[in-house]
């Protein structure tokens, strides 16, 4: 049986956690993702940038009142990549 190739970008604990959160919501802000993943702000910023560069998520920087706020959303490309990743995982489990 041939295994499907796993997306290297998604096969990382933090990036996968971020994508799993974003696939199930409309949008989430940086603080929420940080709380859910229990990641450090620095590490999370780096991983979010990588996902954005790949076109998997979009990041919008704005303000909530006077406080700066970073809102993340999954893109259609991200949804497709996530779906392919899960399909590939299934092929490993059902081997």
């Amino acid at each position: 049986m041939k295994f499907k190739e796993l997306d290297v970008l998604l096969h990382s604990q933090l990036r996968l956690a971020v994508m799993s959160i974003l696939v199930s919501v409309e949008s989430a802000d940086f603080v929420y993702i940080k709380q859910q993943t229990e990641a450090t702000a620095g590490n999370l910023s780096v991983q979010l940038e990588k996902l954005q560069s790949a076109g998997y998520i979009s990041i919008e920087k704005g303000y909530k009142g006077k406080k700066p706020c970073t809102t993340c959303r999954i893109t259609p490309q991200g949804v497709e990549a996530f779906s392919n990743y899960v399909e590939a995982l299934k092929s490993y489990i059902n081997k």
Binding site: H11, S12, L14, L16, S20, L89
Partner: peptide, 21 residues
């Protein structure tokens, strides 16, 4: 979140945990 090697099972568990949360 700690860096560690992900198995297929661990990946799926992480996905379902995050989606449920």
């Amino acid at each position: 979140m700690e860096k560690q090697k992900l198995s297929a099972e661990a990946s799926l568990e992480l996905i379902s945990q995050m989606i449920n949360q």
